[in-house]
Simulated assay, not measured.
Amino acid sequence: MGDSQPAGIDIVAAIEALPPLPAVALRVMQVAQDPKASASDLALVVSADPGLSSRILRVVNSAAYRRMREITSVQQALVTLGFVQARNLAVSGAIAGAYAPDALHALFRIEVFWRHAIAVAFKAAEYAGQGRRVDVPSAFTAGIVHNMGRLALFYRDPALVDQAVARAMAEERTLEEVEAELGFDHAAAGELLARKWKLPEPICEAIGRHHEPLDSPHTLAGCVAMADRYVVGNGLLPGYVLPPAPGTQRIPSPDFAGLMKQVDALMELVTGEPAGVRAA
């Protein structure tokens, strides 16, 4: 075999390297996508995770939501937040909370990875609402998990991911192009991971196809693909920050600036800290 061919990375091994997603996160996703689910149903699931429960209670008792009396019930907290915001917070917190940032790796930043994922989730949900044929909660969930294959690769070989990011930045190429040369397809890995988690088929398909040139809001895969292109096109990359060229300044469009406010607000709710990394 010639040396010019990439050795390839075992996708199954990469998926196995990713710590298991907590059962409560899977259950939160299931309830969030159930059109018959209520705040009470979501509260029952959230209450099974002390960490997620405490974050939600901390949020609802913060200055932004302060009431005359302290809220101590998860169900009351979710009602106070409103079901849509509570659902988004529960899904994001349950998944992102399972994979904490790692400060040892300077180039691939998990905080930026999650900000990108949340931005895609919000935008995919927006597109789903426009098409009116795609389930909005499923679009949000698919957006959150669309790049989990890359996170699996990071857990398998963090130094390799940092090297790939360095090459992408130095050669002004996409991370996907560099991954392909390494013999890794994060979309395919993410789809396989979603099937392992037994996520609904449309979400699995959306994860596997999010880099295809789909441009229809009438399919879940199309919503996620369009959202991913939009977010990347506006400079919020999936796990790393590319500084602007010397002497230039990236000015976000008003609609993207509005999206970033949503992202930062949800990141603050998920982490309990102000978002420390901005799309530059």
Rank of each mutant, 00 (worst) to 15 (best):
E70D: 08
Q75I: 04
S62L: 02
R87V: 00
V74H: 02
V84D: 15
T80E: 14
R69F: 14
M68C: 06
A86C: 02
Q85F: 12
Q85I: 00
Y65R: 10
M68T: 08
F83Y: 15
V79Q: 15
M68H: 05
Y65E: 09
V59R: 04
N61Y: 01
L78D: 10
A77L: 03
A64H: 10
V59F: 03
Q75S: 05
T80V: 13
I71P: 03
Q76A: 10
Q76H: 06
V59Y: 01
E70V: 03
I71G: 01
T80R: 10
R67Y: 11
V79E: 15
A64N: 11
V84R: 15
R66D: 06
V60D: 07
V59M: 05
T80H: 12
R67E: 15
Q75H: 11
T72D: 12
A63L: 09
V79K: 14
S73Q: 07
F83H: 14
Q76S: 08
A64T: 06
L78Y: 13
V79T: 04
T72A: 07
A64V: 02
N61S: 08
A63V: 14
T80M: 06
R69D: 13
Q76R: 09
L81G: 10
V74K: 01
A64M: 05
Y65V: 06
Q85A: 14
R66S: 07
A86P: 00
F83K: 13
A64K: 10
A86Y: 12
A86K: 00
F83R: 13
M68W: 00
M68P: 07
Y65K: 08
R66V: 02
R69M: 07
F83M: 12
N88I: 00
T72L: 09
R69Q: 11
